[in-house]
Design a protein around this nucleic acid. Sequence first.
DNA 1: AAAAATTTGTTAAATATTTCTCTTGCATTG
DNA 2: CAATGCAAGAGAAATATTTAACAAATTTTT
Lengths: 213, 213
Amino acid sequence: MNTGNTKEKQISRAVIKRLPRYRRYLGELKKKGIEKISSKDLSELIGYTASQIRQDLNNFGGFGQQGYGYSVNLLYDEIGAILGLDKEYQIVIVGYGRLGQAMANYIANNESNFHIAGIFDVRQIIQDVEFKDAQILTCGSLSGFVKKENIDIAVITVPAEKAQIVADTVCDAGIKGIWNFTAVDLDLPEDVVCENVHVSDSLHALAYYMKDR
Amino acid sequence: MNTGNTKEKQISRAVIKRLPRYRRYLGELKKKGIEKISSKDLSELIGYTASQIRQDLNNFGGFGQQGYGYSVNLLYDEIGAILGLDKEYQIVIVGYGRLGQAMANYIANNESNFHIAGIFDVRQIIQDVEFKDAQILTCGSLSGFVKKENIDIAVITVPAEKAQIVADTVCDAGIKGIWNFTAVDLDLPEDVVCENVHVSDSLHALAYYMKDR
DNA sequence: AAAAATTTGTTAAATATTTCTCTTGCATTG
DNA sequence: CAATGCAAGAGAAATATTTAACAAATTTTT
């Protein structure tokens, strides 16, 4: 077991970025009732080389069987465990505009192990008083809520100019992870993990690849 | 000029992914009225090494001046031109749920050279009949609209199970690029460019990095 | 006006990542 | 139940990416 004190091979970010994708495809195979798959077949499906798939998976252990392939169900669960998707995370959504609402829906409907504990907005929300079992509150109570409810992750969907203030607030309150949808890179304490969804960067990359079409 | 028939160094995807980020920071510097910056200072700001910044930029030409640095304004525009952000793109948004609305707002307010020409949804939308100067229409007219209006990019924000059908429709109608927000990878013709925003993959990567916190 | 300090563009070195090759083990088939 | 084929795992080779080093050009200082 990894207790964090042995010097072990650091898994590259590129590998981690591929894991959710493997899991996504395995989920689809599962749904279709397919029980086993070889790295070769998975390769054709996903578009990475078979070699890379095997190499990636072997960073975490041998989940396959020679002459047979990989068990779809087993591999799906194993990757889930590697990613930490075998636990439940408590999250808050900060910023309940259209993007915040979209992400709330997405999480509630597709990410069963991420529980929306609270939703925050600067405005006093009138139409919705709650979302599923989460209260919708004003930002003033954010810090206290994160502390009291032991929130793991803050989803930041506020306007860009408010993002850093929100980040500071939740970090001070002891948050462990931030899922940032704003177009700024946040300045965060060492021990807070952050994943950015910079849609503008993605759109601009799209423009680049369209250049000579 | 690149006419596409000379064998030239292929720019790696990693470089392209960094360009929008450079431009974003340069935009902020511009706003602050800063006129020049060295790769060293930019490095401290962005977090890439100065060496990498220079290397990246020199893929496209020498925009800096020895002993001086880079002109913020010039570099901002040059990167914009490299990315193809000096043209206007006609886009349609397909799927006008909360995510579609969020992206429509984002584009209208932040991406001046992407013009929302039309918005499509399966439902007959009652409350909004139009968004800025774009009509909101039902999906039946999507194909005809894309053809007639010469649309460049389709933003796909429909439920995952509809994504491929929408993609097929717009591709048949001659679209050049797709900005895909659904959790599936689309099967597309060779000549259609696609940029995916797989939020689930991003969330799962976040979970991984939170493991031992 | 000369000297010193900057800072780019570029080439070379170091790392990291991906692909290839080969060995070994398992499963299937006759 | 032996022979054959399949496919993982592992290590080596090949690529690609990133970082470092340095010469040349420019600016600033004295």
